[in-house]
């Protein structure tokens, strides 16, 4: 378990972290989610010991780690830009932590071979980082971090520098790896889809504070603030209320409690149809429908339809009174 208690970190007048407290359960895969400048990377680097907090404590596995150097925290760290040791072969990169610990050569060889199989780089032992693709480099960096059997694995935007396809692959692969290895993992990301996809817990950061933390679905369905709601998914405004575009029902005839709107644009995105509407008061509204719903309404530009909040099927649909 990692416990962060009242941590503050300032850079000059800027508060990167402002009295942050957070508990990360053992064996979880927690995402620190937030926009750039929200303090998520600073928080991760503080847990790693790469930044020293101005106030507060960091506890890792029951021991106070606040003043410990990164070498003694039992962590594995993966950087966004890989931080590959460019002058070393893949084998030497992965073996680095073990060789620092003066483990026997035979043990190192065996462990490195095993890890390279796990990350799918078997046969790349003698390559240099410059000869690998971005995704391969990041997998090498993961193997390198896992080699020292860390109690905590910390990933700083690990897929941020990769293209969309490789990113999705590695994300699924990380999820499987975590199911096998069960090491407590903290992942920094600014991509809510990535966080929802891979993490079993999410802490949303904004302006150096934790806005909310919990299970992905809790955050999506029961956001504690407008910021969390907006960051985790699309939001639209209906009758002074913030709602999810897929929680808005449209009908062709007036219904109780529904607002009269006019369709300004219909976009067909395969299964999903996105409609842009405008209310009588001129307020824009965005709605997500299934294709069959849109076909049934014969939705077209210029149509007058009635919109109401109808969280269909979802037990606790997110809606916040707009500020």
């Amino acid at each position: 378990m990692i416990t962060v208690q009242g941590v503050t970190k300032r850079y000059g007048a800027f508060r990167a972290l402002d009295d942050v407290s957070l508990t990360i359960p053992d064996g979880s895969l927690t995402a620190l989610l937030g926009p750039s400048g929200s303090g998520k990377s600073t928080l991760l680097r503080t847990i790693a010991g790469l930044e020293a907090p101005d106030a507060g404590t960091v506890t890792i596995a029951g021991a106070d780690a606040t003043r410990l150097p990164p070498q003694e925290r039992g962590i594995g760290f993966v950087f966004q830009h890989y931080a590959a040791f460019k002058h070393m072969s893949v084998r030497d990169n992965v073996a680095f932590g073990l060789s620092i610990r003066h483990r026997p050569k035979a043990e190192i060889r065996e462990r490195v071979g095993e890890l390279l199989r796990v990350v799918g780089l078997d046969g790349y032992q003698d390559r240099y980082p410059g000869q690998l693709s971005g995704g391969q480099r990041q997998r090498m960096a993961l193997a390198r971090a896992l080699a020292v059997e860390p109690t905590v694995l910390l990933l700083d935007e690990p897929f941020g520098a990769l293209d969309a396809k490789v990113r999705a692959e590695l994300r699924a692969w990380l999820r499987r790896l975590h199911d096998e290895v069960h090491v407590t993992t903290v992942l920094v990301t600014h991509d809510q889809e990535e966080a929802m996809d891979v993490a079993d817990r999410i802490a949303v950061l904004n302006g150096g504070r934790v806005e909310q933390d919990g299970r992905p679905r809790e955050l999506y369905e029961d956001p504690a603030s407008e910021f969390v709601m907006g960051f985790l998914g699309p939001v639209t405004r209906l009758g002074g209320r913030l709602v999810r575009p897929h929680d808005v029902a449209l009908s062709g005839a007036p219904v109780d409690g529904a607002a009269e709107t006019m369709v300004t644009r219909v976009v067909h995105l395969g299964f999903e149809v996105r409609a842009e509407l405008v209310g009588r008061d001129g307020e824009p509204l965005e709605v997500q429908l299934t294709r069959s719903e849109a076909d049934e309404l014969e939705l077209a530009r210029g149509d007058i339809v009635w919109a109401r909040w109808a969280p269909g099927g979802v037990s606790r649909a997110a809606a916040l009174e707009a500020a």
Binding site: L50, Q71, F77, A83
Partner: peptide, 19 residues
Amino acid sequence: EQEQAAATLGASRMQAFWR
């Protein structure tokens, strides 16, 4: 960053410098 990575892997400052 490479030096930081070495530190998280357990290397002291001197080890990180030489290696």
